[in-house]
Design a protein around this nucleic acid. Sequence first.
DNA 1: CTCCAGGTGGCGC
DNA 2: GCGCCACATGGA
Length: 275
Amino acid sequence: MTPSINAPDFDLAATVECGQAFRWSRSADGWWTGIVNGSVRRVRQTGDRLEGDFEVRYFSLDLDLRSIVATFPEDEPLRLAVRKHWGLRILRQEPWETLASFIASSTKQIVQIRQIVELLAQRLGRDGAFPDVETMARAELPALLKCKLGFRAKYLQSAARMIDSGQVRLMDLAGWEYERALEELQKISGVGEKIANCTLLFGCGFHQAFPVDVWVERSIKRLYFPRRRVTPRQLREFTRSHFGPYAGWAQQYLFYAERMRQAPPEHLTTRRDGR
DNA sequence: CTCCAGGTGGCGC
DNA sequence: GCGCCACATGGA
């Protein structure tokens, strides 16, 4: 019989579908299948019961969601997003796969990011696992282009090479100060503030990292700065000061709520008419 | 066919 | 700093 635990304050579907991970999919029978740290995992949630091949740490089930949300500012927009998607948790993912996935993400739709990550795993990885840094560092550009990376191929290749050669110390970042870790990642060409923050939040345990993409920017402008001009400088200042020590978690609630406002419920497909 | 996508680097101001 | 543009590729 499969192992199971009581997992209160947890929404498996929201957690794996909110845009932070790209290798989970749901079967008709309600089971989710994902590849975590190179191995296949099958998980199902029924009410508060979580069963299957789960890892408590990966799903951040060792953290108390109520305590985290208690650190959020008392504002209505965030309160609504949290209520709507209660149980969404930030995953603890592998740093390299996280960085690589988000390098692949720039100006791509989520369905296409999933496709690129899958192609990289199938063509370059072992047994469907995401290719490690060394493998990616040795990969030639044409091989990466076949994975539909387009202009991102050279960025991914140089990222792998900088990490493999020790110029960027990806595996050490978790123990560093946030600002220093952010700067370290931005030494990589093709990695700016947004991708660096995604990597720190989803892959390196920095709860305060606050990625600002087009959806979050739209959300924040609409909810917090209606009919006002906001410069990039002001936006950055706001996202770093307003949301507290778990700002990244707040960001994910805002991101997912904004996506769900415009997308059909179960798939993160896009509409382009803005309504 | 046209438009656009979890951005970034390089450019001119 | 800020605003603009190119950058590959595929889905709508």
